[in-house]
Write a protein that binds this DNA or RNA. Structure first.
Length: 899
RNA sequence: GGGCGGUUAGCUCAGUUGGUUUAGAGCAUCUCGUUUACACCGAGAGGGCCGGGGGUUCGAGUCCCUCACUGCCCACCA
């Protein structure tokens, strides 16, 4: 045999991926078949492949491939997301490195830079996906900011505006001072951090009294326009309707009473800074307090602050504390822990800020999206994820979605302003038309208008993804009618709100308009029927794998080291739906960074090697024209029965998205049953095998490759072709999913007895240090079962081969110098050539006897219970009776052995 | 503060409507083996009062209550 002993994935992977592309294996176009559609969650266009991607995309690929093999028209639509804030931040950073500030450029110049960046890095992640084996229809690759998609996004905006669900207003919003844009509530991540709580005194005007307030933000004192206490807080009753003097700026502001104030917290007195705190803003509104905004967009203090102008808020805080100390107004400083909101993208501490933004009213959209899942139009896997979805979308929790962003990279909001009026339209021309009509001034020009400077939140375009990738809003709905609603969405639960909920909203909002009432009545409006939530990939300390922590292995390095099939095995073997995955890539104890190692992926790599060598073994045999032996036939019957059983397991696991179960069933069947039992059984001494046995073996192995193909596409394709060419000389792609046949349960039981016997003999040899391959004679005590067993086809031959027996016969009594043990309910005697430690053997048997007697008591107690016998289902009682009989049989055998 | 989930072998997890052994898998561990398809291997072994307590039931890892620990989501405590 000249072929190498180890599997080399590299050459195989490249060859077959190209083969699939060449044969348009992943292409899909509407036809008569049932569609199976997944819109790939678009990765960030400038991103690189990470562990979370590999988990999600492998799962999708496995599901797609299986569907395709089952004869469905499988369509996996790939694409990338423009990721406005993330990408813009990268471009800004790159420009800064060149000494250019964003403000030095015009919008057009900046976008030119951004597109250049996108063109340079935009394709990388999709190429990496191909290395992973992802079989998407690349001819359908979309980008959320390409013209055709942007057009649909603007159309959606206009429709929402016209239906009265979009509005523009000045609200307290979350401001990211680093990206200098507003964020939606979902983009703010709150974590507990240590902060200082400063107690500062405010003099009550016209008295010598002071009220002490507690604040964590002394730098905003200059923006204070009030002081609040609880109306029933008796400590402060005497000051009601008086004023206090704000320190530093010496401004006189009113003392107001408000239920919002917690009597217990701090000193029970609260400074009110309406411009820089959501709650203060609301208190201010209730009491008509002035709003003084002392912060610039970048978080530095402006002229209105009077002090520390130009300093960043953090710096100004230090300055303010120092100054308050000097004036004696700072009473004390306490440490406490409180939640701090940071920008999901830039990690900057978010600043509450009053800004003018576009909001999408969630009232109707959220109710619809909630009902869609509640009513079962859409199924979540695991179903428990609905709880999270529900809590988010309930009317009392949902808040309007701020959709505008102060960025340039994205779809510019299609709103034009003229003389205080807003004109929303897909194009400037249409807006102009509207304005001319409205004003009656036909001389109006586009240049008279001011278009909204802001762009839309990235998630606004993502929300339209299942419709827009099919150009659903551009008039020609051929694709949409065939593929919509899509079959499945596979994504992480962490973006359930960002994305899943919003796709559902937009799906229900827009599909009917595009597809018509009759169509949606028949097919539904939902963007997908099932959602399969994958878990987060975590490190050994259960932390989410993130770039900043450096706790994630490098995806490319893993692929290089273990091969795509190996990595896919590693990802899928731990991919139960919804469960977070503690990925086994160890951290370097010195640096705390991830090492690019994984035992699970290595297990996958070794599995590839096992398959490779099993195939090598088969390919090395010479087929001869002779009748198969009885043992070969029985073994093949058994293998086929086990295969059918496994197909059933795999199918049912797939149906519930239990991908790791499906994979483990196959792993155990192929490695354990096929390699360790079956191949050892039929392995010919002389390398010659009957053609019919060979054909049955390769046919079964071929089906194993087919079943495993969704998980490990490359090596299975490779081996499948080698098997095919041997049988039929064909060269085609894996294209059929095996069917389970009815199998003989008795055969499985008989074979299990054989396995028990063989293991028993092996154990007997081991425990007494007997050579494994020295032929020994074995006797079964004569019984109805043992007689039937020995006369069963090939039983004796198979047992002799696997257990290295010289003979296997029946005996009425225990032969001399023999070692007795139980094979299930049968007594077996192994003849030894050396003396036996009788005492030790007796002790072993007595221990077992004791255990069995205890067990029997339990069963008999159960069976003696009238309420069990009459109350439990018949088959349960029958099962207990069988257990009772078997145990009695075993006990009898042991007692006989012990004499 | 409100809500959801988890707690089963050293580790990561299965355990489907209570009833197939006195609870399984993979990995890890230990022992033995290897000119044998594969040391990227084979064979064998050890290892768990299913977080604690109480209850329902003929029967509980599975259902109920309670406590403990833990993870997550949501929420305006300055």
């Amino acid at each position: 045999m000249s072929s190498p002993k180890a599997y080399n994935s590299k050459d195989v992977e490249q060859r077959w991926y190209q083969h699939w592309l060449d044969h348009d294996y992943f292409r899909s176009a509407p036809d008569e078949r049932e569609p199976f559609t997944i819109c790939m969650p678009p990765p960030n266009v400038t991103g690189v492949l990470h562990m979370g991607h590999m988990l999600q995309y492998t799962a999708q690929d496995a599901l797609m491939r299986k569907a395709r093999m089952e004869g469905k028209n499988a369509c996996w639509v790939p694409g990338t997301d423009h990721a406005s804030i993330a990408t813009e931040a990268k471009v800004v950073k790159k420009l800064r490195a060149k000494g250019i500030k964003k403000s030095d450029l015009t919008r057009e110049e900046f976008l030119k830079e951004a597109f250049a960046w996108k063109d340079e890095y935009g394709g990388i992640i999709l190429e990496q996906l191909k290395l992973l084996g992802a079989g998407a229809d690349w001819s359908r690759t979309r980008f959320t900011m390409e013209p055709k998609l942007s057009k649909q996004v603007l159309k959606a905006f206009v429709k929402l505006y016209e239906s009265g669900q979009l509005y523009r207003g000045k609200r307290m919003t979350n401001w990211d001072p680093e990206a200098q844009t507003v964020l939606s509530n979902e983009e703010v991540i709150y974590t507990d951090e240590n902060k200082n709580l400063y107690h500062v005194r405010y003099q009550v005007e016209g008295t010598e009294d002071y009220i002490v307030i507690a604040t964590s933000r002394p730098e905003t004192i200059m923006a204070d326009t009030g002081l609040a206490v609880h109306p029933s807080d008796e400590r402060y009753t005497k000051y009601h309707s008086k004023n206090v003097i704000v320190p530093l700026v010496n401004r006189s502001v009113p003392i107001v009473t408000d239920d919002y104030v917690e009597i217990e917290f701090g000193t029970g007195a609260l400074k009110i800074t309406p411009a820089h705190d959501q709650n203060d803003y609301e208190v201010g509104q209730r009491h008509g307090l002035e709003v003084i905004d002392i912060l610039n967009a970048d978080g530095s203090l402006n002229e209105l602050a009077q002090f520390f102008v130009g300093q960043d808020r953090e710096e100004a805080r230090v300055s303010a504390v120092k100054k308050l100390k000097e004036t004696g107004d700072l009473i004390e400083t306490k440490q406490y822990r409180t939640s701090v909101g940071r920008s999901e993208r830039t990690d900057a501490v978010v600043e509450p800020r009053l800004t003018l933004q576009w909001f999408l009213n969630m009232e109707k959209l959220a109710a619809t999206a909630l009902a869609a899942v509640k009513d079962g139009d859409i199924d979540f896997h695991p179903a428990g994820m609905f709880n999270m979805y529900n809590s988010w979308l309930r009317p009392e929790n949902v808040r309007d979605w701020c959709v505008s962003r102060q960025l340039w990279w994205g779809q510019q909001i299609p709103a034009w302003y003229y003389e205080g009026e807003t004109y929303v339209a897909e194009t400037a021309e249409q807006a102009l038309e509207k304005a001319r009509k409205k004003t009656g001034n036909s001389d109006l020009q586009i240049t008279d208008f001011q278009q909204d400077e802001d762009v839309l939140d990235t998630w606004f375009s993502s929300a339209l993804w299942p419709i827009s990738v099919f150009d659903g809003m551009l008039g020609d709905t051929t694709d949409l009618e065939y593929y919509y609603p899509t079959t499945l969405m596979v994504t992480g639960w962490d973006i359930m709100f960002f994305w899943v909920a919003r796709m559902v909203m937009f799906g229900y909002e827009f599909s009917e308009g595009e597809l018509g009432v009759d169509f949606v009545a028949e097919h539904g409006k939902m963007p997908f029927k099932d959602v399969f939530y994958t878990g987060m990939v975590r490190d050994e300390k259960r932390r989410k794998m993130t770039k900043s922590l450096g706790n994630s292995p490098d995806a490319m390095a893993l692929l290089e080291r273990y091969g795509a099939d190996g990595v896919r095995f590693g990802m899928m073997s731990s991919a139960a739906a919804g469960n977070d995955i503690i990925f086994d890539a160890p951290l370097d104890p010195k640096t705390g960074k991830a090492k690019n190692e994984s035992k699970l992926c290595d297990q996958g790599r070794r599995f590839c090697n096992k398959l490779f060598n099993a195939n090598r073994l088969l390919q090395g045999w010479e087929q001869v024209e002779r009748s198969p032996t009885e043992a070969e036939q029985v073994a093949a019957d058994w293998l086929e029965a086990r295969l059918s059983q496994t197909i059933g397991e795999v199918n049912s696991a797939f149906a519930d998205y239990r991908l790791s179960d499906a994979l483990m069933s196959l792993y155990k069947f192929i490695w354990g049953d096929f390699c360790s039992w079956y191949l050892e059984l039929i392995k010919p001494e002389d390398g010659q095998i009957s053609r019919s046995t060979y054909d049955r073996t390769t046919a079964a192995f071929e089906q194993m490759m087919t079943l495993l193909h969704p998980f490990m596409p490359f090596i299975t394709e490779e081996i499948w072709h080698q098997l095919r060419s041997r049988i039929e000389g064909e060269d085609c792609v894996v294209s059929t999913w095996p069917k389970a046949n009815v199998y003989d349960a008795d055969l499985l039981n008989r074979f299990e007895l054989l396995q028990t016997l063989v293991s028993g003999v092996r154990e007997a040899r081991k425990s007494r240090n007997l050579p494994e391959r020295e032929a020994l004679n074995l006797y079964f005590r004569r019984s109805a079962t043992s007689e039937a067993l020995l006369s069963a086809p090939a039983f004796s031959a198979m047992a002799s081969k696997l257990a290295y027996l010289g003979s296997l016969e029946l005996s009425d009594a225990q032969p001399n110098n023999s070692l007795a043990f139980l094979v299930k309910t049968e007594a077996a005697y192994l003849i030894l050539n050396e003396t036996i430690d009788v005492a030790a053997e007796r002790e072993k048997m007595e221990t077992e006897l004791k255990r069995l007697r205890g067990f029997l008591i339990g069963i008999e107690k159960k069976l003696g219970n009238e309420r069990f016998v009459s109350g439990a289902p018949e088959e349960v009682v029958a099962r207990e009776r069988k257990k009772q009989a078997d145990t009695q049989e075993k006990i009898g055998q042991l007692e006989m052995m012990l004499g």
